[in-house]
Amino acid sequence: MLGELFKGLGTTLRYIFKPPVTVQYPEVKRPVRERFRGRHELKRFADGKERCIGCSLCAAACPADAILVVPAENDPENPVSHGERYAAVYEINMLRCIFCGYCEDACPTNAIVLEHQYELSFYDRRASIYTKEMLLAPPDKGHGDPPPILRELQRRPSPPAQIDL
């Protein structure tokens, strides 16, 4: 009986000398894992064009029906994305999202990526809807080139479904 008590206190004693695991959030922020799924970001290619082609596959894959995509046709003079089509409206309702990452899996152009931002709080429900402007990466933060066949051709190319960008 007494032995057990000292055993328990012993554990307490041992932890007194260990460094604490709690952090002083929000002053201190814990780093997240590489594959952490936080708030989405809509990516761009290195040339600044949006990767999203408005295909709605993310919305189709989303189990929570959190995504709204309204597509539109690119103006050939001033295209928003490579190819014929872009997302005129792109919204994610962060209150609906369950951060499963299916949208990221579904996206044929790796446009929607769940990033490391996890501070999502809102004063009202409307504020939980992130619009395209809020989700888009800054124009100078694009990465990767559109595949050569799409750039070389004398046509208005569309990113195909099957190749890895």
Partner: peptide, 11 residues
């Protein structure tokens, strides 16, 4: 076939 199903209206 281009297989651009993501932007194809028939998809």
């Amino acid at each position: 076939h281009p297989l651009d199903c993501p932007v194809c209206d028939k998809g």
